[in-house]
Amino acid sequence: MSVSVKFIHAVDPADKGRYEDGEDRQYLYEIQAEGSLAIYEKIGKHLEKGQAPHVVYGPSAWFRVEGDPLGKKDQKPGQVYFA
């Protein structure tokens, strides 16, 4: 499933807030403790340890997200990636 972000304010029409899966990559989201929304690009079976988000939106930029959340299944077994 792709990730779709709904923004609070109007944005540039070129930026629809959609991140499409395909070509062996998948987009996942994580709502961080302070309310920011991080979008990760997973290529292959797992995220790389220490991988930075593809994009981060502050808490005042978005109000809804749809798609696949980042989960333990996206991490290599036995390794801690995110706090």
Rank of each mutant, 00 (worst) to 15 (best):
V65C: 05
E34M: 00
L28D: 07
K6D: 10
R64N: 07
D21K: 00
A14I: 10
A52N: 15
Y19G: 04
F7K: 07
G44K: 00
Q79A: 10
D12E: 08
M1Q: 12
A10C: 09
L70E: 09
G50M: 07
H46K: 14
A52Y: 12
A33S: 09
P13Y: 09
H46C: 09
P59F: 07
I31V: 11
P53W: 03
V80Q: 14
I43T: 11
L47T: 05
Y29G: 00
D74I: 07
H54D: 13
I8A: 08
P69C: 00
A83E: 11
V65G: 03
P77Q: 14
D12H: 05
A14N: 12
V56A: 02
L70G: 06
F82D: 15
K72Q: 15
R64C: 07
K49M: 05
P13L: 10
I8Q: 10
A10D: 13
G50F: 03
Y57Q: 06
Q51I: 00
D74F: 01
E41V: 03
H46S: 11
G50K: 06
L47Y: 04
A14W: 08
V65I: 06
E30N: 12
V56Y: 02
I31M: 01
E20D: 14
Y19I: 03
G50Y: 04
Q75M: 15
E20Y: 13
S36F: 01
P59G: 05
R18G: 05
P77D: 15
S36I: 02
L47P: 04
K76P: 06
V80K: 15
R25A: 04
K16S: 15
R64T: 03
G44S: 01
V65E: 07
R64G: 06
F7G: 07
E20C: 09
I39L: 11
Y81Q: 12
A33W: 06
R18W: 01
A38Y: 01
P13N: 09
G22Q: 01
A33N: 08
G71I: 08
Y57T: 04
A38M: 02
R25C: 03
I43R: 05
V56W: 03
V5K: 13
Y27G: 04
G50H: 06
A33G: 01
S60H: 15
K76M: 12
K6R: 14
L37S: 01
Q79R: 12
H54M: 14
V11P: 05
L37K: 02
D12F: 03
K45G: 06
Y29H: 02
G22T: 02
G78C: 03
K6M: 09
E66T: 10
V56L: 02
V3C: 13
S60A: 14
I8K: 14
I31G: 00
E20K: 14
G22C: 02
V11Y: 10
Y29F: 08
V65P: 04
K16D: 14
G22H: 00
Y29T: 00
P77Y: 14
K6G: 07
Y81N: 13
K73W: 06
I39H: 10
Q32F: 08
A10R: 11
A83K: 13
V55A: 05
K72N: 14
Y57N: 05
V65Q: 05
G17I: 11
W62S: 05
H54E: 15
K76D: 09
A61V: 13
K72C: 11
